Computed example of a mutant assay.
Amino acid sequence: MRSAKRLLTPLSYLRIERQDKWLDELILPLIFLLVTLFVFWLLDWKLVIFGSSGLLAGVGSYLQVVTGFYIASLAAVATFNQKNMDHRMEGESPSLTVEWKGGKREEKLTRRRFLCFLFGYLSFLSIFVYFGGVAANLLAQAILNALPIAAVFWVKWFFVSAYLFVVYNLICTTLLGLYYMTERIHRPKSEFVEVAGDNVPEQDDANSDQGVSTDAQAPKQSEEGW
């Protein structure tokens, strides 16, 4: 049991509470799935799913490329030598409930911890989806032949819907990781500068003469948590 828990640790990403969690992980993939199924319906469901030229093979080719990227990104984040990576995120930080001394407590995640969970989840999911697609390609014909003819359509497209939902979840989470790696972690941490009391009236007078509000000049701490 403990060994299985260790192997499934990357899935802890799904337990992280953060801003826009349901939008990124559920609503957007579901919207993309419904649009895709609508397109399939317009095509009268005439789409190759299995086989060397089918949908699963195409997704598998994509996963062969990105799985290495996910694992390399995980290694880079874990060893990235930047001081602010070990700071908690500003605003509403992502949090994870963890076991602690026989009980449970809520842990506010640092940038490094959050990104390690994110790319660990992507690595795990890409491997799972890739080998799941390979297994489906190998077993699909035998399974469909064993089913009643009336059930073949529904079973086939139920599997395709579940498979595509996971793929779209993978894509949305990848875009979140790219946003964070390209922009968010490089944002400088906001700092407040304390102004000496004797200088405050002069600054206020000077700003008043110029019609500028002192509040507009004061640095503000970012409210975006992640």
Results as ranks from 00 to 15, higher is better:
Val65Pro: 06
Gly60Ser: 11
Thr67Ala: 11
Leu37Tyr: 15
Ser95Trp: 07
Val48Arg: 12
Leu96Gln: 02
Val65Trp: 15
Pro94Asn: 06
Ala78Thr: 13
Ser93Asn: 01
Met85Gln: 04
Met89Asp: 06
Ala75Trp: 14
Arg105His: 11
Ser93Phe: 00
Thr67His: 13
Trp45Gln: 02
Val39Pro: 02
Gln82Lys: 14
Glu92Tyr: 11
Glu92Met: 15
Glu90Cys: 06
Lys104His: 11
Leu63Phe: 06
Gly102Phe: 04
Ala75Tyr: 15
Gly68Val: 07
Lys104Thr: 13
Ile71Thr: 05
Leu74Tyr: 09
Tyr70Pro: 00
Asp86Thr: 02
Lys101Phe: 14
Arg88Met: 05
Asp44Met: 10
Gly54Cys: 00
Arg88Glu: 15
Val59Phe: 06
Pro94Gln: 07
Ser53Cys: 11
Gly58Asp: 05
Pro94Leu: 01
Val59Cys: 04
Glu107Ile: 10
Ser61Tyr: 15
Leu96His: 07
Gly102Met: 00
Val39Gly: 03
Met89Phe: 06
Ala72Phe: 13
Ser53Asn: 11
Thr79Arg: 09
Met89Pro: 02
Phe38Ser: 14
Glu106Cys: 07
Ala72Gln: 09
Gly54Pro: 00
Met85Pro: 01
Asp86Leu: 02
Leu43Gly: 10
Asp44Val: 12
Ser95Asn: 04
Asn81Val: 12
Ser52His: 10
Val59Lys: 10
Val66Trp: 06
Val59Trp: 06
Leu56Ser: 01
Val59Thr: 04
Phe40Cys: 03
Ala75Ser: 14
Thr79Gln: 12
Val48Lys: 12
Leu42Glu: 12
Ala57Trp: 04
His87Trp: 12
Tyr70Leu: 00
Leu55Trp: 03
Met85Ser: 03
Gly58Lys: 08
Asp44Thr: 10
Ala78Tyr: 09
